[in-house]
Amino acid sequence: MNCPLQGERKGSVNRIMRELNGISVVVPFLNEEDGIRKFCNTIDKYAEKFDFFLELIFVDDGSTDSSVEILKQCAFQNIKQVKLVKFSKNFGSHAAIRAGLQYASYEISTWLGSDLQEPLELLELSYEKIREGYNAVYIEKKSIKVSKANRIFSRIYSWMMRKYAVESYSSGGISTIVFDAKVRKYLNENMEANSSIMLQAMDAGFKSTVLSMDFHERSAGVSKWTLSKKMKLFIDSFVAFSFAPIRLVSIVGVFIFCIGVVIGISTIVNKLINPNVPVGYSTLASITALGFGITNISLGIIAEYLWRTYDAARKRPVFIVSDVVTIKECESDTQ
């Protein structure tokens, strides 16, 4: 395979590469020193069978271990080009994916985790689907070896996304998306903070299809997908793509008002029928506590929307890139 970039000016590199058949793969990682070498070796070996080019764009999301040093030592024989984008601090996996897409060279793009849970076969299958005319291919989790708690969270999240946010969201959960230049351009031009890049792509309505695949168990290391990050994604997804929480506030308010009216009427009727019956202070205290609780929850939901509006109005960057390193340049070779 001869590199067609040889002898071309730097300003035309991206244009030429996009004319080729290939996929740019963004790989966000955080403290993956136990598994980053295995990932590099595995995908490099697997790429030997591809009849298209493959570019890897690693995004260091603020790692504090030796992940970057190990990555720079890896030898890539079958990957056409390898880049490393380094963040100034931890901004999250979705921000890392968005950053990587900014540096993608090929027409087709996607992202993979560095834990090798996604089957690499998805690259070939999705490539064919994109060539058939689809703008995006959603990779659905047919099966995966994770804890029971993770499965429950995934099912609840998927159900609520389909019900209240994006109707096309898969019941099995979407892990990654393979998409063409149209989708990437849309995502790059509409950079959203505190949002889900998957839901943003799915909500845009591009022509798409779904591939259901068996996922693998994490190859090495410990998952950085903590409970707090899951909760943030859950809240971000609803606030960014659904008005259901705000409508819930109104419904609960009307419901509590009706309860108050019923209790008030029953208290008056009971007092008229039995004048000697004392007013129940415990009932009053319960209603007051319930009312204050509902009010605080409602204010919290509204505050989530207000905070994100304020955060968007400040126009602070979704991520800050401290350095970009080319680990392997495209060079003339023969395969």
Rank of each mutant, 00 (worst) to 15 (best):
N194A: 14
V210M: 14
D214V: 06
I130L: 15
K229W: 12
G133Q: 05
S170T: 10
S175V: 04
T209Y: 11
V146M: 10
L187I: 15
V252D: 02
V183H: 04
S195M: 10
T226S: 14
F238D: 01
G253Y: 10
M191R: 14
Y138P: 01
S170G: 12
A204P: 01
G221S: 06
S143K: 03
S195K: 00
Y134E: 02
G173H: 05
S196E: 02
M198F: 11
V252Y: 09
A201R: 04
F243T: 11
Y164T: 08
S219T: 05
S242A: 07
M213Q: 02
D214I: 09
K232S: 15
S228E: 14
F215H: 07
K145H: 12
S154M: 08
F255Q: 11
E217A: 15
A165T: 01
V210E: 03
E217Q: 15
S175F: 04
G133F: 11
H216D: 12
K129E: 14
K230M: 15
V166E: 03
M160C: 12
A181D: 11
S171H: 11
E132R: 08
L125N: 03
G221E: 00
T226I: 07
L248V: 03
K224S: 13
R155M: 02
A165M: 07
A193E: 06
M202C: 05
F234W: 13
L248G: 00
Y127S: 03
L233S: 05
N188T: 10
S223V: 05
M198L: 14
S208K: 06
F206Y: 13
F243W: 04
R162I: 08
K129T: 04
F257K: 05
S250Y: 13
F206I: 05
I246L: 12
S250M: 11
V137D: 02
V254D: 09
S228Y: 12
F179G: 01
F215T: 00
S219Q: 04
A201Y: 08
S170R: 07
L199M: 12
G205V: 06
F241S: 05
Q200V: 10
H216A: 13
M160H: 07
T176H: 11
D214H: 09
F215L: 09
I144Q: 11
L248F: 11
G205F: 13
A201I: 12
I174Y: 04
K145T: 10
R162V: 01
I156M: 13
V178W: 02
A201G: 14
K148Q: 03
A201H: 01
Y157S: 02
R184G: 09
A193R: 12
F257R: 06
L233W: 07
S212N: 09
M213S: 00
S219R: 01
G253C: 12
N190E: 05
Y169T: 07
E128F: 08
F234C: 12
L187A: 06
M161G: 02
F255Y: 13
Y127C: 02
F257C: 15
D214G: 09
A240F: 09
I152S: 11
V210W: 07
T226A: 09
R131Y: 13
A181C: 10
I144K: 03
F243K: 15
Y186P: 04
S171C: 08
I139T: 02
I130P: 01
K207F: 05
I139K: 05
P245V: 06
M202Y: 08
G173L: 09
Y127K: 07
I197Q: 03
K230L: 15
S250C: 06
S143T: 05
